[in-house]
Structures are given as structure tokens and as C-alpha cells.
Amino acid sequence: MHESNNNNTQSGQRPTPTPEEITRRRFLERLSLVAGGVGALILAVPIVGFILAPFFARKHEIWRSVGKLESFKIGETTAVEYEDASPLPWAGVTARSAAWLRRVNANTFIAFSINCTHLGCPVRWLAEANLFMCPCHGGVYYQDGAVAAGPPPLPLARYPVRLQNGEVQIQTAPIPITKK
């Protein structure tokens, strides 16, 4: 026991108390602290779990129809609206999302995120200028989403698009968060 004490002291730890040193008071102190810790843990696990669990839930993205194929003209870029993948029942209008959809040719579409890659503000399409412009800090993008001017570090994000039974469908996606 003494050896053990010396070793602990040398390694910078408190010496292990002898059985005589463990008084009733110290035992009760420890009992209270451990019991308090257990109680806190019993409460903390479900509470923290409840708050954080949604972040670890697997998201299932789905395809949303945004219009008939013939309603989009070749060479034009139009705003399309659709609903998020699995909105909460009380989401109301916040469940809506939008994208800029460009019909490149008969069967090719590009869906751009409306979020500027600088800080996420909604970019607007200037049809005659063939440019996207951001109202916040003046980011500008060409019609293919490439950065034309201003602070955006990346081109506009794109969403998957497909044609299904004569309808144009966009796959829902998280708001693109720029890491660059």
C-alpha cells in the first residue's frame, strides 16, 4: 500500500487514502456527488438526446415535380417552387423551397440553388442580362452558374433534375452550405 502511495505521489496523483482515512463524512460526500452525477446523467441523456437526435436522423431526399416539360422554353431560366422532402406538420409556408431551372435543350435541364455561395442570400435572375445577381453583397453569376463577379467563392450549387412521365422533377436537397 505504501509503495502504491509513493508511486502515486511521484506520478503527481493524490495518494490513495488508507481505509482508515476514508471517513464516514468522506464516504457521504462521495455518495452524494456520485448520486447527483447519476441523477444528472439520467436526466441529461434523454434531454440532450431529444435536442440533438434530429441531427443524426437519416434524411430521405425525394423527387418533386415542378412542371410539365412543355412549360419550360429552351434557353430560358425560370423560378420553380416545390415542397421540402419531409416537412414537419406545422412548417406552413416555410416548407416551401425554390430553385432556378434552366432548360438547356430538349431534354437537358439544370437546376440551380437560389442560395448565393457567399452567404446564402437568394439570387435573382436577370433574364435579359443573362445573369444571376445577389441582393446582399453584390455577387454575380453567369447563366451556367459560374461566378461572374463579387465575393462568391463557388459557382451556384446544382440540384439533380430528371424527366419523368413528361414532368420535370427536382430532387430535394439541403440548403447548400459553403465550406470554402
Binding site: A79, G92, V93, T94, R96, A98, C121, P122, R124, P135
Partner: peptide
């Protein structure tokens, strides 16, 4: 305007 993220004309 209402909190509708699909209304693109916004200047936050």
C-alpha cells in the same frame, strides 16, 4: 413579406 423561402425577391 411572409416567411416563405420560395419568395426569391428578398434583400435580407
Amino acid at each position: 413579406k411572409p416567411p416563405d423561402p420560395s419568395i426569391i425577391a428578398a434583400s435580407p
